[in-house]
């Protein structure tokens, strides 16, 4: 069995975002990057399947981006992926989801992946498109927003999360692609021995130009912080003072403390 997991490296969402010089994305400077949260669930599920299938199975982790994305690939290797693919692209933020998906599909085409895992969405772009579009381009069956995954006898039994806590249970035959939702599993922390082992694993470098055949279908026109609606009171300072202030505000404006 051959498995592919696609991961995106994104900034820590607690960062302060500054607009870049071309005004169409955040500036990379001073940001700490990590694996997109949804993709960590994808990696964990792929690794669990890899373990279930044993050594006849090969699990590849792929990421498109500048050199820093190798850190994300290395973490996925330390979690248990067998090999990495770094599709080198310094302008990845300028590509629309259609182009990102077509790059991944161009890489995967003809390689015989039985299962592809992606996150349901990226935290910075949040388009929730790339996975489904890859499946369409490859002609694979696809289900999104998985909170449950079981594989047996060439088919995936998937639990899709719907609104209000309801779930939809579906079955799809391989080759298939699934997009992973928060809480699908509890991603493991790489152990030190596995981090050491991962250093020896291969990371194939592929220039993006060799895979990109599509023009963008959309472009970012502008990027900016939302206008503050505000209205609320912002309090800072010593915690004891803050407690007193909050209690007096609650006494004045609500009935809960009376």
């Amino acid at each position: 069995m051959k498995i592919l997991v696609c991961i995106k490296q994104v900034p820590d969402m607690e960062s302060r975002f500054k607009v870049n010089s071309s005004g169409d994305w955040y500036s990379d400077a001073d940001l700490a990057f990590r694996i997109n949260e949804y993709d960590e669930y994808a990696v964990e599920q792929a690794v669990q399947l890899r373990e279930q299938q044993g050594d006849s199975c090969e699990l590849t982790v792929l990421s498109i981006g500048p050199d820093r994305v190798q850190e994300a690939i290395k973490k996925a290797l330390a979690m248990g992926c067998d090999r990495g693919v770094h599709i080198q692209d310094n302008d990845v933020h300028k590509k629309d989801p259609w182009q990102i998906a077509s790059i991944i599909a161009a890489y995967a085409k003809g390689k015989g992946y039985d299962l592809i895992f992606t996150g349901m969405q990226s935290q910075d772009r949040g388009s929730a498109q790339v996975g489904v579009t890859v499946a369409e381009l490859l002609g694979h069956a696809c289900a999104t927003t998985l909170v449950g995954f079981e594989y047996a006898d060439g088919a995936v039994k998937a639990k899709r999360e719907l609104e209000g806590g309801v779930k939809g249970v579906v079955r799809l035959k391989i080759p298939a692609l699934v997009t992973c939702q928060l809480g699908l599993n509890i991603p493991r922390y790489p152990t030190l021995p596995n981090i050491m082992k991962a250093k020896k694993k291969e990371i194939e470098a592929v220039p993006v130009a060799s895979l990109l055949g599509e023009q963008p279908l959309s472009v970012t026109a502008s990027f900016y912080p939302p206008a503050k609606k505000g209205g609320g009171i912002v309090l800072e300072g010593d915690v004891a003072d803050l407690s007193d202030k909050l209690i007096s505000i609650l006494k004045e404006k609500t009935a809960v403390l009376r």
Binding site: P11, F17, Y26, Q123, S218, V219, T220, S222, F223, P226
Partner: peptide, 16 residues
């Protein structure tokens, strides 16, 4: 207009 970065930023997108 769409949100970005966990609603901390906004983006406008121009489709072809």
């Amino acid at each position: 207009e769409v949100g970005s970065c966990n609603a901390k930023m906004r983006r406008t997108v121009k489709p072809a």
